[in-house]
């Protein structure tokens, strides 16, 4: 691990050489593979397992200017008990909010769930490093134990990979014991080659998780993008021994989307990632569809939107 890390990150030119030396991603082939995996038919017991697993992986998210402490408290309560009528329903993984509401979320969930806070000039990543680090410190002080930062896409796309690397290293340091999720904003990276390179860059710099999107840019998470990132964490672990998590975010609406992602984890990265410690889904309305599907599995009939709580 140390040789790969030190060789790849010794200088900006070494880093750039390493990233451009990664095997390319053929767009047609990658999208074809994802489309084939999406045809897997997940029924009965497999579906029940997948729905519960997906619920336990949700980072229940609200990232709006209009967020209020009341809304965050309601969201946190929902993350704790997604289906109040069914005690067998698992809790979500975390609540994901802006830094100023991290304390509100923490007050509700206590130590029972993770509190994730976006930080470091989310969602644009456009600010000085000092300001970004200060925001991270704020968020962790307010009780966030997971930090979702976004990379500077401008720097990455113009080839200033060292700057991106250094920034992630600095933010990781500022996180202290908090886990760092690095958002690549794949919708702005445009190619799967870039997604793979940015994934490796973030992992080399110390990311605990790599995350697709802020949710503010379209397209957000897509199945092939998540698949390419899962290939990256699989290869990174094989090369270094360190396991990194993946978090697709934005664009999830249906339980079917979530189940397809679990299939891709299972067959591409492997079952080690079928765990909320290693895979998260950043979403809000998705949870309700998972709950409706779960109720349908239990009762045999679809209920309706009035039988799950509003966000």
């Amino acid at each position: 691990m140390t040789t790969l890390l030190s060789e790849a990150t010794g200088s900006e030119s070494a880093l750039r050489r390493f990233l451009s030396g990664l095997p390319g991603v053929d767009q047609v082939g990658a999208e074809g593979r994802a489309a084939t995996l999406a045809t897997r038919s997940i029924k009965t017991t497999a579906k029940a397992y997948a729905l519960d697993l997906a619920i336990s992986m949700v980072d229940l998210t609200t990232l709006e200017g209009a967020d209020t402490p009341g809304k965050v408290r309601a969201l946190a309560a929902k993350a704790l008990r997604p289906d109040p009528t069914d005690p067998s329903c698992p809790a979500a993984a975390a609540v994901c909010v802006y830094p100023d509401l991290a304390a509100t979320a923490r007050a509700v969930v206590g130590d029972r769930l993770h509190v994730a806070s976006v930080a470091a000039a989310f969602p644009s990543g456009r600010s000085s490093l000092e300001v970004k680090l200060r925001e991270v410190a704020d968020a962790t002080a307010a009780g966030a134990d997971e930090i979702d930062m976004v990379i500077d896409r401008g720097a990455f796309l113009t080839g200033r990979v060292q700057q991106v690397f250094d920034e992630i290293v600095a933010v990781k340091q500022a996180c202290g014991p908090a886990h760092l999720k690095v958002i690549l904003e794949t919708g702005e990276l445009a190619t799967y080659d870039n997604v793979r390179r940015a994934s490796w860059l973030a992992m080399l710099a110390g990311a605990d998780f790599i995350k697709t999107s802020t949710g503010k840019v379209q397209p957000a998470a897509t199945l092939p993008v998540t698949m390419v990132m899962l290939e990256a964490v699989r290869d990174f672990r094989a090369a270094t021994g360190r396991q990194v998590g993946v978090k697709p975010a934005g664009g999830f609406r249906s339980a079917k989307d979530a189940v397809r992602h679990l299939v891709v984890i299972n067959e591409v990265a492997g079952p080690d990632w079928l765990d909320p410690d290693w895979f998260r889904i950043g979403a809000s309305s998705l949870l309700n569809d998972l709950l409706l599907q779960r109720q349908k599995m239990a009762t045999g009939a679809y209920s309706g939107p009035d039988y799950v709580s509003l966000d």
């Binding site: 579906k47 397992y49 079952p271």
Partner: peptide, 12 residues
């Protein structure tokens, strides 16, 4: 539930 086998049920 975080048991790490995702067995696909028969889907004939």
């Amino acid at each position: 539930m975080t048991g790490k086998t995702f067995e696909y049920a028969p889907a004939p």
